[in-house]
Amino acid sequence: MSDSTTMLRRNFKHTVRNPITVFNAVLFPIVLLLMFVFVIGGAFDVGVKYIDYATPGMIIMAICYGLSATATAVNSDMTKGIINRFKVMDISRSAVLNAHVAETVLRTLIAIAAIIAVAFAAGFRPTASFPEWLGAIGLLVLVSLATAWITVALGLFAKTPESAGMACVPLIMLPFLSSAIVPADTMAAGVRQFAQYQPFTPIIETLRGLLLPGDTSTSSAIQAVVWCVGIAVVGYVWSLSTFKKRA
């Protein structure tokens, strides 16, 4: 555990020294939110105030935007000499990976806090009760954890830091093809089916249910949790097996 904490501190130093990472992870989703709410969103009719509709989706986008930085960092660790030093030391082997996941989750939570604050200033009015907030936070941590592990796996799997960053692009694009920006049933056939059955739609719907008026659909919630757990498990197992092979 203390090895992981040491590695986490190392990762944090890396992150703050790389302003692009911070921009991508924290500022870009905010810019995106403001764009959609004030520039594009006026043209959408989603039945409720657009910022209330869009914010949960933007929160999920904020989670995904930081991921390519994680993949790049994980891959750099494997391809630059330092990993060989860690491997011949008597330290926990998984500390390097745990630290990347922990750092990703913490960085993501900061990005989420920032985007909620900006959304609030721009008119977002969540109606969540205290237990609903807890549920929302729990869900967001779970989503961060799941996407972080799958991203670590992608970072380990990729040959170079650049291709590791690219490998995350589908993960970043996925929320755009969900109900994040407009409801799935307004989309063209094909895209609609895709949007309905991909993991981010139930995740975003559950988040909406928790933060906004109206009931949370139990089936969405179950789907969201199952997706997250599934992605986390796949990412974790894939990460460890790739790490073993490379390390």
């Binding site: 040491t6 501190r9 190392r10 130093k13 890396h14 790389n18 330092i82 030093r85 330290i91």
Partner: peptide, 24 residues
């Protein structure tokens, strides 16, 4: 072990690299 190719953390300072080792 000091390998053939430098195994230092390039995003850390010299002092931080040594601190990292001391912590580990």
């Amino acid at each position: 072990v000091t390998g053939q190719f430098a195994a230092v953390d390039e995003l850390l300072t010299g002092q931080e690299n040594l601190q990292l080792m001391a912590d580990l």
